[in-house]
């Protein structure tokens, strides 16, 4: 894995999210935002193991996945601004990002709902003898939904070219998983369906990258699949919105220190050449400024657009 690219991709997403935080009080983004800060290594590690033609499905906390898979930053920023140049012409917003050209098949705001679609998409790819795979991302809260188990069962039955990635950030909004799960061994439950499952600790996008690479090869070369990975990670910001939420008291602020200790941005910054870091920072800054200017300068949809695209 190219560690400089890994660092760059994570940092790029983090800087975009920080820009959203900076812009939010201006009320230019008049919609909910579920920020990915802290969880970017999972999206980046997994997507760096994919090809452009591979397809991903995600969740409302989808900025990181969208950008990691190659989603267009200008169109994302315009979408957040509600502009017609947005990836969904302003009709989807932060929770419904899409970029078909880069294999981002959409993100859903109802927990767990995109999981069976990923299974169906993978079924179609297999039927079409395609040489690409599907990866679906969801949180550990989605593993409480019945549709998750229905999806596992059918995916295993039909051996579809799919990788399930659970981003376990421990919390569903403000509820810790210990209050929601009868037993925490998620991989055991998945393995009961005959699906190989592995837990990856410490927000380790590099380990996830290698695991996804191997799984993808096994799928395409040997017809294996599906696979399941539980990637342990941590959300630094509040569930929804631009701030932090330590004041709510549902989690201790010192909980974050262990996650910051293994954060790739902080870690790799110490390893890479300072000149390279400076250059990367400048490039990202310029790209973000361009995207914000694009969003600012774009028009809102005409009112006639209210009635378009209800039906084909």
């Amino acid at each position: 894995m190219h560690r400089q690219n890994y660092y760059r991709e994570i940092l790029r997403i983090r800087r975009v999210e920080e820009e959203i935080i900076r812009l939010y009080p201006s009320d230019k983004i008049m919609s909910p935002v579920h920020l990915s800060i802290g969880q970017e290594p999972i999206s980046v590690g997994a997507c760096m193991a994919l090809q452009p033609e591979d397809v991903v499905f995600g969740t409302y906390r989808g900025h990181a996945l969208y950008l990691a898979k190659g989603g267009d930053l200008r169109q994302m920023m315009a979408e957040l601004f509600g502009k017609v140049t947005g990836c969904a012409r302003g009709k989807g917003g932060s929770m419904h990002l899409i970029d078909l050209a880069h294999g981002v098949m959409g993100t859903s705001a109802v927990v767990g709902t995109s999981i069976p679609q990923a299974v169906g998409y993978a079924y179609a790819l297999k039927a079409q003898k395609s040489k690409s795979i599907v990866v679906v991302f969801f949180g550990e809260g989605a593993m409480e939904e019945g549709v998750f188990y229905e999806s596992l069962q059918f995916a295993a039955l039909k051996k579809v070219p799919l990788i399930f990635i659970c981003e376990n950030n421990l919390y569903a909004i403000h509820s810790h998983s210990t209050g929601r799960h009868a037993q925490p061994r998620h991989c055991d439950r998945v393995e009961a369906f005959g699906i190989p499952a592995r837990r990856i600790e410490n927000n380790d996008g590099e380990a996830l990258h290698d695991a996804v690479t191997d799984a993808r090869n096994a799928i395409l070369k040997h017809g294996a699949g599906p696979f399941f990975f539980e990637a342990m990670t941590y959300r630094w910001q509040e569930h929804v919105g631009p701030g932090t939420d330590w004041h709510l008291g549902y989690r201790e602020e010192n909980e974050i220190s262990a996650w910051k200790a293994c954060d790739p941005v902080l870690k790799l910054a110490n390893e890479l050449d300072p000149d390279i870091l400076t250059r990367i920072d400048a490039e990202i800054q310029a790209e973000i400024e361009d995207a914000v200017a694009f969003a600012e300068g774009s028009p809102f949809p005409q009112v006639e657009e209210l009635y378009t695209d209800v039906y084909a």
């Binding site: 069976p116 169906g120 998409y121 079924y123 179609a124 079409q128 019945g146 999806s151 059918f154």
Partner: peptide, 14 residues
Amino acid sequence: DGMTGVAIGAALAG
């Protein structure tokens, strides 16, 4: 529930 999602996913794939 799941199979409806599967059918939708297959439709998204063409």
